[in-house]
Design a protein around this nucleic acid. Structure first.
Lengths: 153, 153
DNA sequence: CACGATTAGTTGCGAACGCAACCATTTGCG
DNA sequence: CGCAAATGGTTGCGTTCGCAACTAATCGTG
């Protein structure tokens, strides 16, 4: 059933699913980062913050960390960088003065509006190499694995 | 066909395949590293070097780098660490004095023999949460994506 | 055969990362 | 009410990473 004999004694990394999964994720990520890095000058944490903040109306650093599963210091630094470039702004929350509401500035919204269609198109292109049936099967497997590992949202 | 409406304007990171793929790969990797990190004191680059060297009889640092897709400096440092712990040894090649043949020591082979079955069992456990049909579909999709991105071996 | 190009591998260095510690504020409970 | 615990967020610090530069050896071409 697997692509590799299960009883094999040695381990062939090339057929080992965790390794292949990592390689695939890196490959897809690199493919995608061409857009947000080279064309918009964002690194991975910044891109994730943009994506998270852009799809909400105001959210906290903590929410971004939980949603992207990035370490809170990584989020903090990405936010600082984006704020320095005038893409996002922070406002002290009235109800809880510890937290700060993060949202896109006008320039940030402009970038987001330009960036998101390109990124979604890249995803569509990538998935277009799968048949309809393969895509269905792949997503189903991914979903099961996610819930199996407790990764769902 | 997708889990998300393709025409959606905003981008929901939680349903974005590149992001999900990355999260899944990290989750699987963490699940696996419990074994080689906590029980054998290996980090990721070291584990990959062990896995690669163990399944061959003598190989070069360059071969390891190509096979694992790690940067050659990362490989170099992992090899240095493993050599310092007596798990691998290097011998100057007779035919090309630039390269050095890397192989497991006796202690390295012992660790490898103990490690590999545990790791393969982890993989088996993970994939066991998929039905036979799901596994088939997932692997097929993964394979197509790999070849689509030029990642095959 | 000689010399420039290439390849194997290592190392210096700056950037990025995560842990732990920290500050400020809020929450919960006696 | 008051104080300990918890929470949002930032910063210092040691580690890891990859790029670029380097050494040493080999290859290739005139």
């Amino acid at each position: 059933m697997s692509t590799r004999a299960p009883s094999e004694l040695g381990l062939e990394l090339a057929g080992f699913v965790p390794y292949r999964l990592n390689r695939l994720a890196v490959g897809v990520s690199n493919h995608l980062s061409d857009i947000y890095r080279e064309r918009f000058g964002l690194d991975i944490p910044e891109w994730r913050v943009m994506a998270t903040v852009g799809s909400r109306h105001g959210c906290t650093a903590q929410h971004i960390a939980a949603s992207t599963r990035m370490h809170k210091t990584r989020v903090s630094r990405a936010i600082a960088g984006l704020e320095g470039r005038g893409l996002i702004e922070r406002a002290s929350s009235a109800t809880d003065r510890r937290e700060r509401q993060v949202r896109l500035t006008k320039a940030g919204r402009r970038m987001y509006a330009e960036l998101v269609p390109l990124v979604l198109e890249r995803e569509r292109e990538l998935l277009a190499c799968l048949t309809r049936e393969q895509l269905r099967g792949f997503l189903a497997g991914m979903e099961t694995l996610e819930s199996c590992l407790g990764l769902q949202d």
